[in-house]
Protein backbone atom coordinates (compact mmCIF):
# COMPACT_ATOMS: atom_id res chain seq x y z
CA UNK A 1 0.00 0.00 0.00
CA UNK A 2 1.07 3.53 -0.72
CA UNK A 3 2.52 5.35 2.27
CA UNK A 4 3.74 8.63 0.79
CA UNK A 5 1.88 11.48 -0.84
CA UNK A 6 1.90 11.11 -4.63
CA UNK A 7 2.47 14.83 -5.06
CA UNK A 8 4.89 15.95 -2.35
CA UNK A 9 6.33 12.60 -1.16
CA UNK A 10 5.69 13.41 2.49
CA UNK A 11 4.62 10.44 4.60
CA UNK A 12 0.86 9.89 4.63
CA UNK A 13 -0.90 9.47 7.90
CA UNK A 14 -2.85 6.44 6.92
CA UNK A 15 -5.95 6.22 9.00
CA UNK A 16 -9.21 4.61 8.13
CA UNK A 17 -11.93 7.17 8.62
CA UNK A 18 -15.60 6.52 9.31
CA UNK A 19 -16.34 8.17 6.03
CA UNK A 20 -14.25 5.58 4.27
CA UNK A 21 -15.96 2.74 6.06
CA UNK A 22 -19.49 3.99 5.61
CA UNK A 23 -19.23 5.56 2.18
CA UNK A 24 -16.84 2.94 0.82
CA UNK A 25 -14.52 5.79 0.00
CA UNK A 26 -11.07 5.09 -1.29
CA UNK A 27 -8.09 5.92 0.82
CA UNK A 28 -6.44 9.20 -0.13
CA UNK A 29 -3.20 9.04 -2.07
CA UNK A 30 -2.26 12.66 -1.43
CA UNK A 31 -1.75 14.50 1.85
CA UNK A 32 -4.18 17.07 3.21
CA UNK A 33 -1.78 19.94 2.48
CA UNK A 34 -1.61 19.05 -1.21
CA UNK A 35 -5.33 18.36 -1.26
CA UNK A 36 -6.11 21.82 0.11
CA UNK A 37 -4.39 23.47 -2.85
CA UNK A 38 -7.06 22.36 -5.32
CA UNK A 39 -10.10 24.61 -5.72
CA UNK A 40 -13.50 23.13 -6.47
CA UNK A 41 -15.67 24.89 -9.03
CA UNK A 42 -18.83 26.11 -7.28
CA UNK A 43 -22.19 25.57 -9.01
CA UNK A 44 -22.52 29.28 -9.82
CA UNK A 45 -19.04 29.29 -11.35
CA UNK A 46 -19.81 26.64 -13.96
CA UNK A 47 -19.41 28.08 -17.43
CA UNK A 48 -22.26 26.19 -19.04
CA UNK A 49 -25.29 24.31 -17.73
CA UNK A 50 -24.30 21.36 -19.91
CA UNK A 51 -20.75 21.08 -18.64
CA UNK A 52 -19.84 20.07 -15.11
CA UNK A 53 -16.26 20.90 -14.23
CA UNK A 54 -14.73 19.76 -10.94
CA UNK A 55 -11.72 21.99 -10.32
CA UNK A 56 -10.27 25.36 -11.25
CA UNK A 57 -7.07 25.49 -13.29
CA UNK A 58 -4.89 26.99 -10.55
CA UNK A 59 -1.14 26.53 -10.04
CA UNK A 60 -1.54 23.25 -8.17
CA UNK A 61 -3.78 21.89 -10.92
CA UNK A 62 -1.38 23.04 -13.65
CA UNK A 63 1.40 21.13 -11.92
CA UNK A 64 -0.82 18.11 -11.48
CA UNK A 65 -1.82 17.99 -15.14
CA UNK A 66 1.76 18.53 -16.25
CA UNK A 67 3.02 15.68 -14.15
CA UNK A 68 0.19 13.39 -15.20
CA UNK A 69 0.24 14.06 -18.93
CA UNK A 70 3.73 15.25 -19.78
CA UNK A 71 5.82 13.44 -17.17
CA UNK A 72 3.52 10.49 -17.84
CA UNK A 73 3.08 9.74 -14.14
CA UNK A 74 0.14 7.38 -14.53
CA UNK A 75 -0.38 6.79 -10.79
CA UNK A 76 -1.84 10.27 -10.57
CA UNK A 77 -5.03 8.84 -12.10
CA UNK A 78 -5.97 7.96 -8.51
CA UNK A 79 -5.64 11.45 -7.01
CA UNK A 80 -9.20 12.61 -7.69
CA UNK A 81 -10.97 9.29 -7.71
CA UNK A 82 -13.31 10.10 -4.80
CA UNK A 83 -14.42 13.34 -6.44
CA UNK A 84 -14.85 11.73 -9.84
CA UNK A 85 -16.71 8.80 -8.35
CA UNK A 86 -19.06 11.13 -6.48
CA UNK A 87 -19.82 13.04 -9.66
CA UNK A 88 -20.35 10.09 -11.99
CA UNK A 89 -21.27 6.97 -10.00
CA UNK A 90 -25.01 7.59 -10.03
CA UNK A 91 -25.26 9.09 -13.50
CA UNK A 92 -27.64 7.00 -15.53
CA UNK A 93 -25.94 7.73 -18.80
CA UNK A 94 -23.58 6.40 -21.44
CA UNK A 95 -20.09 7.58 -20.49
CA UNK A 96 -18.06 8.62 -23.55
CA UNK A 97 -14.43 9.66 -23.10
CA UNK A 98 -12.96 12.17 -25.53
CA UNK A 99 -10.64 9.94 -27.54
CA UNK A 100 -6.92 10.34 -28.21
CA UNK A 101 -5.26 9.58 -31.48
CA UNK A 102 -3.79 6.03 -31.35
CA UNK A 103 -0.34 7.42 -32.19
CA UNK A 104 -0.61 9.80 -29.26
CA UNK A 105 -1.61 6.97 -26.92
CA UNK A 106 1.53 5.11 -27.95
CA UNK A 107 3.83 8.04 -27.23
CA UNK A 108 2.18 8.81 -23.89
CA UNK A 109 1.95 5.05 -23.15
CA UNK A 110 -1.56 5.45 -21.74
CA UNK A 111 -4.88 7.16 -22.47
CA UNK A 112 -5.09 9.64 -19.63
CA UNK A 113 -8.87 10.18 -19.68
CA UNK A 114 -9.69 6.48 -19.83
CA UNK A 115 -7.35 5.93 -16.89
CA UNK A 116 -9.24 8.46 -14.76
CA UNK A 117 -12.41 6.44 -15.33
CA UNK A 118 -10.74 3.07 -14.84
CA UNK A 119 -9.37 4.27 -11.51
CA UNK A 120 -12.95 4.75 -10.31
CA UNK A 121 -14.33 1.65 -11.97
CA UNK A 122 -16.82 3.50 -14.14
CA UNK A 123 -17.71 1.66 -17.33
CA UNK A 124 -17.28 3.71 -20.49
CA UNK A 125 -17.78 3.31 -24.22
CA UNK A 126 -15.63 4.76 -26.96
CA UNK A 127 -18.07 6.04 -29.55
CA UNK A 128 -15.75 8.58 -31.13
CA UNK A 129 -12.35 8.49 -32.73
CA UNK A 130 -9.84 11.22 -33.26
CA UNK A 131 -8.98 12.18 -36.82
CA UNK A 132 -6.21 14.74 -36.42
CA UNK A 133 -3.12 14.18 -34.34
CA UNK A 134 -2.32 17.82 -33.56
CA UNK A 135 -3.10 19.03 -30.10
CA UNK A 136 -5.82 21.56 -29.42
CA UNK A 137 -3.82 23.60 -26.98
CA UNK A 138 -1.14 24.46 -29.56
CA UNK A 139 -3.68 26.42 -31.57
CA UNK A 140 -5.12 29.86 -31.03
CA UNK A 141 -8.75 30.23 -30.07
CA UNK A 142 -9.69 31.34 -33.56
CA UNK A 143 -7.89 28.47 -35.20
CA UNK A 144 -9.63 26.09 -32.88
CA UNK A 145 -13.05 27.37 -33.72
CA UNK A 146 -12.38 27.30 -37.42
CA UNK A 147 -10.64 23.96 -37.48
CA UNK A 148 -12.32 21.13 -39.32
CA UNK A 149 -13.88 18.14 -37.63
CA UNK A 150 -11.72 16.69 -34.90
CA UNK A 151 -13.64 13.46 -34.43
CA UNK A 152 -15.80 11.01 -36.27
CA UNK A 153 -18.21 8.36 -35.11
CA UNK A 154 -16.49 5.06 -34.57
CA UNK A 155 -17.53 2.53 -37.24
CA UNK A 156 -20.29 0.13 -36.12
CA UNK A 157 -21.16 2.20 -33.06
CA UNK A 158 -24.58 1.69 -31.59
CA UNK A 159 -26.11 4.79 -30.06
CA UNK A 160 -28.39 3.97 -27.14
CA UNK A 161 -31.52 5.94 -26.44
CA UNK A 162 -30.10 7.21 -23.15
CA UNK A 163 -28.44 10.45 -22.06
CA UNK A 164 -24.73 10.62 -22.93
CA UNK A 165 -21.95 12.23 -20.91
CA UNK A 166 -18.68 13.22 -22.58
CA UNK A 167 -15.57 13.08 -20.42
CA UNK A 168 -12.53 15.32 -20.89
CA UNK A 169 -9.64 16.41 -18.70
CA UNK A 170 -10.00 20.14 -19.21
CA UNK A 171 -12.50 22.49 -20.80
CA UNK A 172 -11.23 25.83 -22.06
CA UNK A 173 -13.18 27.19 -25.03
CA UNK A 174 -15.54 24.23 -25.19
CA UNK A 175 -14.85 23.65 -28.90
CA UNK A 176 -13.71 20.07 -28.45
CA UNK A 177 -16.83 19.18 -26.50
CA UNK A 178 -19.04 21.03 -29.00
CA UNK A 179 -17.64 18.98 -31.90
CA UNK A 180 -18.01 15.73 -30.02
CA UNK A 181 -21.55 16.58 -28.95
CA UNK A 182 -22.62 17.46 -32.50
CA UNK A 183 -21.51 14.06 -33.74
CA UNK A 184 -23.34 12.16 -31.01
CA UNK A 185 -26.53 14.18 -31.50
CA UNK A 186 -26.37 13.64 -35.26
CA UNK A 187 -25.99 9.91 -34.62
CA UNK A 188 -29.15 9.88 -32.51
CA UNK A 189 -28.14 10.47 -28.90
CA UNK A 190 -31.15 12.01 -27.11
CA UNK A 191 -29.05 14.37 -24.95
CA UNK A 192 -25.35 15.01 -24.47
CA UNK A 193 -23.77 16.62 -21.42
CA UNK A 194 -20.15 16.83 -20.41
CA UNK A 195 -17.99 16.29 -17.38
CA UNK A 196 -14.43 17.59 -17.08
CA UNK A 197 -11.86 17.39 -14.32
CA UNK A 198 -10.78 20.98 -14.86
CA UNK A 199 -12.25 24.28 -15.97
CA UNK A 200 -9.53 26.28 -17.73
Amino acid sequence: MNTICYLCSKPLKSRLTWKQLIMYEQQAVICSTCDSKFELVKPEEQKSPDIQALFHYNEAMKDFLHQYKFFKDIVLKDVFRSEIAKALKNADAVIVPIPMHPEKIKTRTFAHIDELLKAVGIPYTHLLEKITIESQSSKSKMEREQSAQLFQLKPNSIIENRPHILIDDIVTTGTTLKHAKAILIAAGAPSVKAFTLIQG
Binding site: T3, I74, K106, T109, F110, A111
Partner: peptide
Amino acid sequence: NLFVTYYCAA
Protein backbone atom coordinates in the same frame (compact mmCIF):
# COMPACT_ATOMS: atom_id res chain seq x y z
CA ASN B 1 7.04 2.51 -3.24
CA LEU B 2 8.57 4.60 -5.98
CA PHE B 3 8.08 2.16 -8.83
CA VAL B 4 4.86 1.96 -10.77
CA THR B 5 3.75 -1.09 -12.69
CA TYR B 6 1.31 -0.24 -15.45
CA TYR B 7 -0.10 -1.48 -18.70
CA CYS B 8 2.05 0.26 -21.31
CA ALA B 9 0.22 1.11 -24.54
CA ALA B 10 3.50 1.42 -26.42
